[in-house]
Nucleic acid binder design. Sequence first.
DNA 1: ACCCACCCCTGGGCGC
DNA 2: TGCGCCCAGGGGTGGG
Length: 283
Amino acid sequence: MPELPEVEVVRLGLERGVVGRTIAAVDVHHPRAVRRHEAGAQDFADLLVGRRVEAARRRGKYLWLPLDSGDAVTGHLGMSGQLLVVPPDKPAETHLRIRLGFADRGRELRFIDQRTFGGLQVVAGGAELPSTIRHIARDPLDPEFDDELFVGRLRAKTTGVKRALLDQTLVSGIGNIYADEVLWRVGLHGGRATEAVTRPKARELLAHAREVLAESLAQGGTSFDALYVSTEGVSGLFAHSLSAYGRAGQPCPRCSTPIRREVFMNRSSASCPRCQPRPRHPR
DNA sequence: ACCCACCCCTGGGCGC
DNA sequence: TGCGCCCAGGGGTGGG
């Protein structure tokens, strides 16, 4: 469950569902899901049992739960990860990877991940900002996001605008869906050279990013299927509001020209040929 | 110090 | 039915 709105929906669910509770049992069903925890699954479990969850935080697409030990459980959902808060007697999901039970014997936290690109780890002293996430930039909805720093860094790059939007060390939370939506809204082709984006255009880009992320969050995020759901298993509704992503061949909502599909960075991109003309020298 | 191609996985959908 | 492709919202890494 990938991009900012979807991950934020999960964070809100964790805030409601697990904060203030004490972890009593940890089952790691698949070692790959804790591969970033170098000391192994047993150490992962030992650091969690008996610990109280103090908060649920997010930086970009990363989540973490500060613990009363001062450590933090850090998680990334990758392409197909889910964090669900479910009754303990609910049958195990096919791709259940990690299970956290609580001392109150109430609903448990399950990490489910078909492709296991995601995973959890415990980071020592990571309550404030886990060391493994320090390289991730703030997201456009973060009150401390520095707009002019972003504008300057974007223009200092020598790459395409879409690549820059997907660079989590420049601005976080934006993935393939929202990059395409932002570019459609601002009327730029993703291959446009970053160094040629004017300051006003860069600010406009940022404003559109804020807008689309906030609109999607208000709709509970984008869900094409049951893979992308809240901790309660609820799907978001923003898929109905997408203008470009996943709409190849369908009319542009602004000018009715059929949306085009292109591949770069080994990923598909959807854009309007008329509203987002291809640059002469794409990046 | 960049930037980019590649890799890590599983499963659904498609054409043959 | 089955096989072989292609595709999917992620990030880290190693080489250029």
